[in-house]
Design a protein around this nucleic acid. Structure first.
Lengths: 201, 201
DNA sequence: GTCTATATTGGGATAGAC
DNA sequence: GTCTATCCCAATATAGAC
């Protein structure tokens, strides 16, 4: 047994890596990838930047670990694997938005890196392009099921619902990051679902 | 008379400054502010970075010039000063979106800097916070007038219309930058107006 | 596993010649 | 107005001692 707890010299490498990934997610969310420094990340863990690089060979590798971690946490929170009733689909998305609102850090990480990834030669461009395509597909599947059950508003196609939901969600989060008092992400999303569906949220 | 044309040694300082601002807008849009280098900007103009700094004392000053230039161009395109008929308000916004779609560089500049400005210690944080507040007010005024004329959809408040329009617009532009084939900004905006108003767009 | 020391690169900015 | 040369600083990454 090599991991004996969360602290102390026998805490283990796995725990240290977890600490680093968490700190990196914080820093990348606050400063972006390029402007976020390994020194800052290492400082929050209480080690030197060169020690950090002992665990993750390069900044790029660390970024990938952070993104992979976020994907696995999101999947866990959403339970995409379980079947979701068409009528429950909007409510499931609202729950995810509420969970994000309670963890402001994840909003920054996602929103800042998303926009940064549209710049030239950005290491996470492919990641976000793939991830947005996947999200669009997931949304489309959910709204397709709603359409079949007659739960979409008149003249709203599943495609339209998927694209507009993703757009309004991202945009609301950006506005919230810029000025937290100016907008409530969950309320905007509820209003959107009220307009494009026939179910209560 | 010191400015005799667009090229040649007597082109004038004003023309050179214009070239620099245009190149800076390109580079900041493609790479963001922090990652965009003065060397890159100067290279596109055909001068050295130190020559650039002769015209604009620092990178920060150049950024402010770029943002001020964008504001004045937008104001010119929108003609906010002239009165807009309530029924024409959505169409006016669509025109602006169409104009942006024709100048992809503008979208990158705005969207990338907007998200970057949410990171810690960013020099344009105040600018974008103020600008978004102003835009929200402008939108609110337009939708208020529509509400008075009975042109908003049922159960849609002017406040809701303003916030959601800004969010869906920003979000759609981000998606477009990430993957230009995946979304059409103007179509998403049209769909949104179709749902929140009673006018044809 | 962590540190110190260092290599290397690239950034913004200044001084001074022309 | 523009260039070359230079300064200073911060960053990622590596080497090697402990």
């Amino acid at each position: 047994m090599t991991t004996t707890g969360k602290r102390g010299p026998y805490r283990g490498t796995a725990a240290r890596r977890r600490e680093i990934v968490d700190a990196a997610a914080e820093v990348f969310g606050e400063s972006g990838y390029r402007a976020g420094s390994l020194k800052d990340i290492a400082g929050r863990v209480g080690i030197d930047a060169s020690s950090l690089l002992h665990h993750f060979g390069s900044k790029h590798v660390l970024l990938e670990a952070v993104l992979a971690d976020k994907v696995s946490r999101d999947a866990q929170a959403l339970h995409w694997d379980e079947e979701i009733e068409p009528a429950e689909f909007p409510a499931a998305l609202i729950r995810l938005a509420e969970r994000n609102a309670a963890n402001p850090g994840v909003i920054g990480l996602y929103t800042v890196l998303l926009a940064e990834s549209t710049t030239v030669d950005h290491p996470s461009a492919d990641f976000f392009r793939d991830r947005h395509a996947t999200t669009r597909r997931d949304f489309l599947r959910g709204f397709d099921a709603m359409a079949e059950a007659g739960l979409l508003a008149e003249d709203v196609t599943p495609q339209e619902a998927a694209l507009s939901t993703l757009a309004i969600w991202d945009g609301a989060q950006t506005q919230w990051l810029l000025d937290p008092g100016a907008i409530e992400v969950v309320a905007v999303l509820r209003g959107h679902f009220r307009r494009i569906t026939r179910v209560e949220v």
